[in-house]
Amino acid sequence: MWGKSSLAVSQLIVISTFFLILGGCATTTGSGENAEFSNLIEKASSQYEAGLLTEAESSYRKVTALRPDYYEPWLKLGNIYVRTGQLEAAVRMFRECTELRPDDVRGWSNLSLTRLKQSLAVLDDAQQYFPSESTGAAVLRNSRESLIKNLVD
């Protein structure tokens, strides 16, 4: 009986060692991936802060591909798109923010401000189709003033 127990203990040690080694490999790989991910985030952030928006966009896109549940890159992408006049893309990014973290006010606030920019842009674009003294131009001016007034009140 002692022999069988000894064999079982030996097998248990071999199996335990195997799993420890396997676990160590997984941790090492994970650590490398985490370091690479951290470096990518740092790179994107540096590019963003330096105003290198095209490069930052590319880096943040890579981050979202690796971790689609990570909030900050979506927010930064939205800000990049606002700054570059790509308002529809900005809305999509801020929508993603509100879905990922509905309790974070930044996504909601940026989404609403972007929608306001879109509204003002629509009114400004429409002006070109109406002579400045026409009824249509007056309606558009009133709509713009009303939108702005309601924001202040």
Rank of each mutant, 00 (worst) to 15 (best):
W2V: 04
G3A: 13
S5H: 02
S5N: 07
Q11A: 15
L12W: 10
V14W: 02
V14P: 00
I15Q: 08
I15N: 05
S16E: 07
F18R: 03
F19M: 05
F19T: 08
G23W: 03
C25T: 07
C25A: 10
T27R: 14
T27Y: 11
T28H: 15
T28F: 15
G30Y: 14
N34E: 13
F37A: 03
I41K: 12
E42F: 09
K43W: 02
A44Q: 04
S45C: 00
S45F: 06
S45N: 15
S46C: 00
Y48T: 05
Y48Q: 04
E49S: 09
G51R: 00
G51I: 04
L52H: 00
L52P: 01
L53Q: 00
L53V: 00
T54S: 08
E55Q: 01
A56N: 02
S58N: 03
S58L: 07
K62M: 14
T64R: 13
P68S: 08
Y71R: 10
P73T: 01
L75N: 14
K76P: 04
L77M: 07
G78H: 02
N79S: 09
N79Q: 06
N79T: 14
I80K: 05
I80F: 02
V82L: 02
V82H: 04
R83Y: 07
T84G: 03
Q86N: 09
Q86L: 02
Q86G: 06
Q86W: 01
E88K: 06
E88H: 01
E88Q: 08
A89L: 13
A89D: 13
A89R: 12
A90E: 04
V91M: 03
R92K: 12
M93Y: 09
R95D: 15
E96P: 00
C97T: 06
T98H: 09
E99D: 12
D104K: 15
D104R: 15
V105H: 14
R106S: 14
R106G: 07
S109W: 13
S109L: 11
S109R: 13
N110S: 05
L111R: 01
R115F: 12
L116V: 10
L116Y: 12
L116F: 09
L116E: 10
K117M: 12
Q118M: 10
Q118C: 00
S119K: 13
S119V: 14
A121K: 13
L123A: 04
D125S: 15
A126G: 08
A126W: 06
Y129N: 14
Y129H: 14
P131N: 06
E133L: 05
S134W: 07
A137F: 09
A138D: 05
A138I: 04
A138R: 12
L140Q: 01
R141D: 06
N142S: 13
S143R: 09
S146T: 12
N150L: 12
N150K: 13
L151I: 03
D153P: 04
